[in-house]
């Protein structure tokens, strides 16, 4: 890695902190994926990486490249928008898929709800 010598100190320090914070939160999220006991608890773990994990690294990237190229570099905002829109959709799909599988297998620890998803769709 080559850091230009004229990079201001505060930019270097702030970028370091943000990158480490983002990477650390992502790691904690995946450690939670290993440590939590059942699927529905594990669903919560990766959201650490997809909210503040991505956010901190993107902020670091925006800051670093804006100073490095001495013009506003903002295209990282796009990744932030895509990730915030897509993560809830995938998680909600996954949870409802898991619920349907548990209902099909007759597992007792999930709440019984009228089947809203596919059945109502077929009636339409």
């Amino acid at each position: 890695m080559t850091v230009p010598a004229d990079l201001p100190d505060w930019v270097a320090i702030l970028t370091s902190v943000l990158v480490l914070l983002g990477a650390g939160l992502t790691l904690i999220g995946t450690v939670g994926l290993l440590r939590l006991k059942n699927f529905y608890a594990r669903v919560h773990a990766p959201t650490l990486g997809t909210t503040l994990g991505v956010g901190c690294v993107l902020l670091a990237s925006i800051l670093y490249f804006t100073v490095l190229q001495s013009r506003p570099v903002l295209h990282e905002v796009l990744i932030a928008i895509f990730v915030t829109i897509t993560t809830p959709v995938t998680l909600m799909l996954l949870v409802s898929a898991a619920l349907h599988r548990d209902w099909d297998e007759g597992n007792g620890h999930v709440p019984m709800q009228p089947r809203l998803g596919p059945d109502t769709k077929e009636q339409e």
């Binding site: 919560h44 959201t47 997809t50 909210t51 915030t84 809830p88 909600m92 949870v95 409802s96």
Partner: peptide, 17 residues
């Protein structure tokens, strides 16, 4: 509301009747 609840760590939207 679904996006807010799901993307906040610790809560996941499951179903709305």
């Amino acid at each position: 509301l679904a996006c807010i609840i799901t993307s906040t760590p610790g809560t996941v939207w499951v179903n709305f009747d």
